[in-house]
Design a protein around this nucleic acid. Structure first.
Length: 848
RNA sequence: GGGGAUGUGGCGGAAUCGGUAGACGCGCUUGAUUCAAAAUCAAGUGACUUAUGGUCAUGAGGGUUCGAGUCCCUCCAUCCCUACCA
């Protein structure tokens, strides 16, 4: 073979790795350091991988291959987040079982990944939708249940009567199902909830201990949303009832001019006066049918509300405050009721303006600020607050909370935005709950030994006519269970897609265990994940849910670490150019070409099209399939291009010409080693050829940068250094074999196939995968002479070549000797001479 | 509205510590090779200019400094997340 033919060498080495079990995970050996490199596992969709997927996978593969060469026991697994809605939709559409569709998709994904030569241990492959896996998801649910962290509650869901199904929040927009436009209503249904709120403070605090991007931590902090304030009790005038409000500004209690209850607040019905009843009922009805998301995000967000006719008593001064119902107050946050202080809260201000309610200033705003015009939420000394006048905000808060507690009107309270996790879905393709219900709907759990509760066969993957989840279609033999003579029925909801991904990183540690989800030794050795890479879209939900489960497992003594993922990194999305004409019609990249004027036109008809860099999607005709890239340029070129494009964390556009450039680099590398005529190693590559200083400097610069780059997850620059080395080496008539071997070593993590082939051609028989990583020869990096910039007034006027360790005076003399420098110094007085060794000389001058 | 990021040639990007801006790749230009083309190799390629030199240039405008892509202030644009959280 004389040319570089990735299509030949890549399958060859992939087959050899398989055959030799090259990437089998080593046995647990406490004497050997471990490294656990994990990529977020994909949902095996019907459309297959696109080139965005292999970005993080390539980075992780490079790290894994490198760590093996450093002597680590590496765990580098891959699997499938295989439950989920798309397969269920496809099943409904095609009348097939979602399991079969999922398995097909997985086979396709696997074949795509295998073609890229990732060093996964495929023996540890997992699939969250197989009973062998979800048995343990159910098992962990039982742990949550035992800890009192799982409970049933009536909660509102999005119900679509036309489709006869419940929809996820993401599927509903403006009160309609996104796909069909059918109206969606809110309906109360009994749902499983997980008490993630119990862990709110720990989820917040433990962020301090993980090596995660600051912005992801910040997103989680905001999602958890801790705020400190007070809970204050308000009596209702003329009734025995009272209600509590949560406020972060108890210092503004004297400025409260009305109260608001959420439409769903339990007291609304009771305290509404007969005169107001019709209005309130109408309002509550309307609000109920708008989803919460809709209510919050919808349109201009004009304040609406209605007076109940009732009054609350302000505990601090006995004032009568009208009680309103308004949907800007959310029943799910705090107590579902607020005291409104329009002078110092924007939302209350807008509401007060709309309904002409009084605005009373209780925190002195700046002279140029009128609280009648807009709210003042800044600091200031208190006014109109009785005995509390003259305090600043912080001091006031402390004093008023003491007072509230002393007078039994309230207390200090910490509130989180984080809510309990709605954990059931009315779907077929998910984990069945290991739960039985009696006639009254009281739950009991299935014995752990009886797991898994497998998915039953049903006739259609959709809800029943009366709106029960698909599992209600199962036969009686599945639905009903006899327990001590009583008939119990199975829970027909299933778990959400997040469930399986909450603990998959643990299963990889011990994937074939039939006694436990994972053994103690395996977890102790492999945990926690050392490096976890995935998209930033999982910054909150998946990562928060997984941390939650991990902490529960920690409390159960099942895992030994507090946090599951030591280091987290987010890769940036890969975008692609799209081409679209004035009518909005998209064209495939191969349908367009660039005209002489630089604009783009369709090949047929020469219609002008706009180019735009967008997210890859089928509808934009800009999805790039890695198989196509592999077929044309090979997996090694794809892998290197993915890394060469730019920093891993950055969003960047795919450019096929860039892959071509990388392919040329690999072809040049091939020609550097391999004689075109014989197909064997060039005869001018020999052990007795001495390495010159330039070649060694170039090589060791590359060794150093590749090494550092992998440690710091910076992969683009090191590729440039390898390119420079190959370019330089190509110009040599004879080449030292040892140096070329070192080069193959550092190329190997990036482009493992060509590296293996060249390693073999070099006559090496040791396993490349575990051949020790080369050390940098720092001596090779130093140069005898250095190039020094010479500036006058900070402007570059020349440069000079000086001995590495030239003294200050010597450099100054040389600098002054440069003709152009002398020209700029002439007739000037030198005020200051700045010498930065190895870098530059700068003269600061002044007219003489 | 809140939070986060990003802005450098025709394009992707480099400059990691305040020290010669534009490494490397793409594209483009010229040359070699070829009957020709592809491929390959070599050289060039920020703009302007009165060209061995000079001036201007890192989203815009200010500032600190001998020296700023890098630090500080003000603003603009784009993207992502979040969204009435009391």
């Amino acid at each position: 073979m004389s040319r570089y033919q990735p299509g030949v060498i890549e399958p060859k080495w992939q087959a050899i790795w398989d055959e030799r079990n090259t990437f089998k995970t080593p046995e647990i050996d406490p004497g050997t350091p471990k490294y656990y490199a994990l990529g977020m596992f994909p949902y095996p969709s019907g459309s297959g991988l696109h080139v965005g997927h292999p970005e993080s996978y390539t980075a992780l593969d490079i790290v894994s291959r490198y760590k093996r060469k450093l002597g680590f026991n590496v765990l580098h697994p891959m699997g499938w987040d295989a439950f989920g809605l798309p397969a269920e939709r496809a099943a409904v559409r095609d009348g097939r079982h979602p399991r079969d569709i999922t398995r097909e998709n997985i086979a396709n994904f696997k074949q795509q990944l295998k073609a890229l030569g990732f060093s996964y241990d495929w023996d540890r492959e997992i699939n969250t939708s197989e009973p062998e896996y979800y048995r343990w998801t159910q098992w962990i649910f039982l742990k949550l249940y035992d800890q009192g962290l799982a409970y049933l509650a009536e909660v509102p869901v999005n119900w679509c009567p036309a489709q006869g199904t419940v929809l996820a929040n993401e599927e509903v927009q403006d009160g309609r199902y996104v796909e069909t436009g059918d109206p969606v209503e809110r309906r109360l249904m009994k749902q499983w909830m997980l008490k993630i709120t119990v862990y709110a403070q720990r989820l917040l605090d433990d962020l301090e201990h993980v090596d995660w991007p600051e912005h992801v931590k910040e997103m989680q902090r905001q999602w958890i949303g801790r705020s400190e304030g007070a809970e204050v009790s308000f009596k209702v005038e003329g009734l025995a009832s009272s209600f509590k409000v949560f406020t972060t500004r108890p210092d503004t209690l004297f400025g409260a001019t009305y109260c608001v209850l959420a439409p769903e607040h339990a007291l609304v019905e009771q305290l509404t006066t007969d005169a107001q009843r019709a209005d309130v009922q109408a309002y509550v009805e309307t609000a109920k049918n708008r989803s919460e998301r809709d209510r919050q995000a919808g349109g201009d967000r004009e304040k609406t509300g209605v007076f109940t006719g009732a009054y609350a008593i302000n505990p601090v001064n006995g004032e009568k405050l009208p009680i309103w119902v308004a949907d800007y107050v959310l029943v799910t946050y705090g107590t579902g009721a607020i005291m409104a202080v329009p002078a110092h809260d924007e939302r209350d201000h807008a509401f007060a303006k709309a309904f002409e309610l009084p605005i009373i200033e209780v925190v002195q705003s700046p002279a140029d600020h009128d609280v009648q015009e807009s709210a003042w939420s800044g600091d200031g000394l208190s006014v109109n607050s009785g005995d509390f006048d003259g305090l600043n905000v912080v001091e006031f808060k402390r004093r008023i909370i003491d007072w509230l507690e002393a007078e039994a009107h309230g207390k200090g309270r910490v509130q989180f935005k984080l809510r309990d996790w709605l954990f059931s879905r009315q779907r077929y393709w998910g984990e069945p709950f290991p739960v039985l219900l009696d006639e009254a709907g009281n739950p009991s759990v299935v014995d752990p030994d009886a797991l898994p509760v497998t998915l039953p066969h049903i006739d259609a993957y959709k809800p029943t006519a009366d709106g029960q989840p698909p599992l209600a279609r199962a036969g009686d033999d599945w639905l009903f269970v006899d327990a001590d003579g009583k008939q119990l029925s199975r829970e027909t909801n299933t778990m959400p897609q997040w469930a399986g991904s909450c603990w998959y990183y643990l299963r990889y540690m011990d994937p074939h265990n039939t006694e436990l989800p994972f053994s103690e030794q395996a977890e102790k050795y492999w945990g926690p994940v050392d490096l976890y890479i995935g998209g930033v879209e999982h910054a909150v939900l998946h990562l928060l849910y997984a941390r939650f489960w991990h902490k529960v497992l920690f409390d159960c003594g099942l895992v030994s670490t507090v946090e599951p993922f030591k280091k987290l990194f987010n890769q940036g999305m890969i975008l692609a150019y799209s081409y679209r004409d004035a009518n909005g019609k998209y064209y495939y990249p191969e349908q367009v070409e660039q005209g002489e004027d630089g604009d783009w036109y369709t090949k047929e008809g020469a219609i002008r099209v706009d180019t735009k860099i967008e997210k890859m999607s089928k509808s934009r005709f800009n999805v790039v399939n890695p198989n196509d890239v592999v077929a044309e340029y090979g997996a090694d070129a794809l892998r290197i291009y993915e890394m060469f494009m730019g920093p891993l964390e950055q969003v960047k556009p795919w450019q096929m010409s860039g892959v071509e450039g990388v392919y040329r680099f690999l072809a040049r590398t091939w020609r550097l080693f391999i004689d075109a005529d014989s197909g064997e190693l060039h005869r001018h590559i020999r052990s007795d050829v001495p390495a010159d200083a330039d070649l060694r400097r170039s090589l060791h610069t590359a060794v150093q940068q590749v090494t550092q780059g992998i440690e710091e997850l910076r992969f683009n620059g090191p590729v440039s250094r390898m390119m420079e080395f190959v370019k330089l080496a190509t110009a040599r008539a004879e080449l030292p074999k040892h140096e070329l071997e070192l080069f193959v070593q550092i190329l190997a993590p990036y482009a493992p196939h060509i590296a293996e082939e060249l390693w073999e051609k070099l006559g090496r028989t040791e396993a490349l995968a575990t051949f020790p990583w080369p050390d940098v020869d720092l001596g090779a990096l130093t140069q005898d002479t250095v190039n020094i910039a010479v500036q006058v007034q900070g402007k570059l006027r020349g440069s000079l070549e000086a001995p590495k360790n030239a003294g200050k005076d010597e450099l100054l003399a040389m600098a002054k000797g440069i003709e152009n420098v002398a020209r700029f110094l002439e007739g000037k007085a030198i005020v200051k001479e700045i010498v930065v060794p190895g870098r530059l000389v700068n003269f600061v001058v002044r007219p003489a």
